[in-house]
């Protein structure tokens, strides 16, 4: 009995902290965006799309760096919109935490003029399955359903300066031209996800 409990505990603990790495299959999910539209990851992959997931918190200064002071995400998403790339933001903040909740994120979509869906994951299940730790934390999923890139959006972890290298842009350039993604993993930076 004790062994069974130990095993169950171990499995639970492992599931709680499991994070995906490049080369592994991206965990499937169903989430609803701020407009009430449902999104199913596998459906996009079945349609041959490359998917970019951006962990999001509208009140995090590092998110503001890319949505307010600069248009890093918006511009890159627009650049690849016609290349079978689906870009989605996910907010895994729990109710009552900074930047969480339907109303705040609806407002953020307007404030930042975000043209792609912002999905709500208020119980944090999807965020934890991906091992999302930061906002922003980026995952690029290839048409094979595997993680092609995970980590930071760019190479400068300062809250103001933009990095010289945009890792997601590099990954998308490679994937859309059939080339190999060279840099598959970096350390994400930013605020902690407010689980």
């Amino acid at each position: 009995m004790k062994s069974l409990l130990t095993l169950l505990f171990t499995l639970t603990a492992t599931l709680a902290v499991a994070a995906v790495s490049p080369g592994e299959t991206a965990p499937d999910f169903h989430l609803t965006d701020t407009d009430g539209q449902k999104h199913h990851l596998q459906s996009y992959l079945d349609d041959g799309k490359i998917v970019v997931l951006e962990w999001f918190n509208p009140d995090c200064p590092y998110v503001k760096k890319h949505h307010e002071a600069n248009h890093t995400m918006k511009d890159l998403a627009a650049q690849y919109a016609g290349h079978d790339v689906v870009w989605m933001a996910i907010n895994s903040g729990a109710e009552g935490k900074q930047g969480a909740g339907l109303e705040r994120n609806r407002k953020a979509v307007e404030e930042y003029a975000i043209a792609y869906p912002v999905l709500l994951d208020m119980n944090g299940k999807v965020g934890k399955r991906y091992g999302a730790t930061n906002t922003p934390h980026m995952f690029v999923i290839g048409t094979d359903g595997k993680i092609a890139y995970a980590g930071a959006i760019d190479s400068d972890n300062d809250a103001r300066e933009l990095g010289e290298t945009n890792y997601v842009a590099e990954a998308l350039a490679a994937l859309t031209s059939g080339a190999k993604v060279e840099k598959t993993e970096t350390k994400a930076y930013g605020c902690s996800v407010k689980y």
């Binding site: 902290v17 994070a19 944090g124 965020g127 934890k128 730790t133 902690s192 996800v193 689980y195």
Partner: peptide, 8 residues
């Protein structure tokens, strides 16, 4: 440790 996911 935050939410069994984040360690700082």
């Amino acid at each position: 440790v935050v939410a069994d996911v984040i360690l700082d």
